[in-house]
Amino acid sequence: MDASWLYMYMPIAGVDIFWPGLVLIGYSVGVIGGFFGMGGAWMVTPGLNILGFPMAFAIGTDIAHIAGKSMISTIRHSKFGNVDYKLGFVMVVGTMVGIECGAQLVMYLERIGRIGPVVRWVYVVFLLLIAVMVFSDYAKAVKKKKQGIADGEKGTEGFTWYKTLHKINIPPMMHFKASGIYCSAWLPMVVSFITGVLAGFLGIGGGLLRMPALIYFIGVPTHVAVGTDLFEVMISGLYGAFTYTLKGRIELVAVFVMLTGAAIGAQIGTVATKYAKGYGIRLAFGSAVLCCMISIILKQFKFQTSAAVLILGTIGIICIYIMVIMFRGAAQELREKKNREQVTVRV
């Protein structure tokens, strides 16, 4: 059987790509990212690499799609809610320098011909840590439930590392009014630099690291941290897209295909959060991360097909699971709404 119509030629990367896989990755990253609220870009770089993109192209394409996606979430929130702009702009410096360093490192590794294995192994470690984090959170939640403790406001109680860090008084000292903190400008710059390097190197938004760093190391109130992080993700995505394109490591066609899928998927994912109950879904998320990690290892040992089947299968199943939650919940809500209206009419 001729399956050539399932493959699309990418003119810049010069590879034939299984395009349904590309659509599935874009859509899933939207659904899963929208649902769990943690980016989801971590599955894009490995996914694209497994589909056949050279690693540098996978990273560049991932980071460009983040830029587009962050525009979508910005539109959705219609404004940046609680952004500490002063802090945001100070961090932009660190973020941009960091992204550039990450991208330069990628280019260096490409020149010496080691990029594939190095990025893959770093991803394996990174995903393993995410999985450990998710599973330990789950275990903690289950334990709390057994002990009958209600899940209180997630806060910074007892966590005051930032108080020590605020004592560092290397000039210039700055007062960030929106966050209500006074510290050396170097502190947010260093934090944003480190997250920037990782974002530029792995092709992610970096929110996963930036959020806790903002809260615990800089002492930004949680609601301001959320908005400021969103702002940084947008900047880092745009700068990353620009610098990776300038280095010629981006596949525009793939960016658009994925962006379209992600835009649709994100709606389903975020709506589904409304109807999801319990912590069980966290287990599914952790398993997805683990499967993604295993598929990277498979790819590393040249089991191309098994790697592709595993990663696409995993994200496909999770997508269907979330979609079922969403459609069931939405159908029920619409039914109830209709019933209410009928009752009102009768009255």
Binding site: A13, G14, V15, G52, P54, M55, E110, G113, I115, G116
Partner: peptide, 9 residues
């Protein structure tokens, strides 16, 4: 093209 053989990276 032949030496880079991007596909293997």
């Amino acid at each position: 093209v032949s030496k880079q053989d991007l596909r293997k990276k």
